[in-house]
Design a protein around this nucleic acid. Structure first.
Lengths: 150, 150
DNA sequence: TCAATATATTTAACATAGCAAATATTGTGC
DNA sequence: GCACAATATTTGCTATGTTAAATATATTGA
């Protein structure tokens, strides 16, 4: 009884205004605005920042773990690490035991960038918490986690 | 008092595991999986599908409105419409009154694709509702809307 | 041991994201 | 009516997303 009907009475998709995929994009777009602004003046992209963050948080790791944690597909990860190598922000070397694996690590220069932006990044996180509310933000993260069950 | 501290006692960013931008990406990735699968066999991308959906829902409209509703940047919209033109799924013509504006409309072939996929798309939407729960899904959309205040 | 498989990562190719600059058309003030 | 600012869209360029294929190393079983 809750099926959406269009003007002709036929079964219709939910309006794009309440579409989950579109809502996720829109929200993300807003969140990323200030973050991109923060990163633009140090020549780092959003994805490069994520890789540095993950390396700083979890330490040196193989490519697959890094891609999973930074939420990147392996091909993207490969390219991004290559540019980070050129910038001198990470290192990469084959694992001794299993030479198929590549171990990626953050350099001092990479850590410096994170530390330089720490206050700004913290301020952005705080701002989000203020606007959305601490409780609702926690709810949001919980609900989003449930999407992994799909 | 709620500041996150790392091992050295310095101010630290929230773990990437509870990062809002990353959580949004992960959720979106899961949602899009079945949708991409549905579209792959008719040679249509996710963004092309969004444009067709919006044109079907709101009718012929200028490029800016279309981009806004389909949640695409104008340059992306321009290029995607170009490929849709080549596929014969949309038309585009200059507005009579204001020749700067381009009016885009869906064709019969474009509508046919939407109607062909209607049942499948509906099933995906239902599946999401089952897993997340109707109430929580509504909460999610409400919270995501609040991000526009940022 | 060696061929067949499986695993880890990279490359290739095409589509899109994001930003800045270029184009085209319209509106405005003098 | 014209130079000039404003608006709507497109183009150019670099980076990433996405899928499939290629490459390299490990593992397994006859």
């Amino acid at each position: 009884m809750t099926d959406d009907l269009n003007a002709t009475g036929a079964l219709a998709l939910p309006s794009t205004k309440r579409s989950v995929p579109i809502a996720l994009i829109r929200a993300r777009e807003k969140v990323m605005g200030p973050i991109r602004e923060m990163l633009s003046d140090c020549g780092i992209t959003e994805q490069q920042w994520r890789i540095l963050r993950v390396l700083e948080e979890f330490g040196p790791q193989d490519a697959s773990s890094l891609a999973e944690r930074a939420c990147l597909l392996l091909p993207s990860q490969t390219r991004i690490v290559q540019t980070l190598l050129e910038k001198g922000l990470v290192t990469r070397q084959a694992d001794e035991k299993d030479r198929r694996k590549q171990t990626v690590a953050i350099t001092g220069a990479g850590q410096a960038i994170i530390h330089d932006k720490l206050d700004q990044a913290q301020a952005i996180a705080t701002r989000i918490e203020e606007v959305i509310g601490k409780k609702r933000l926690a709810e949001l993260l919980d609900i989003l986690e449930d999407f992994q069950k799909l």
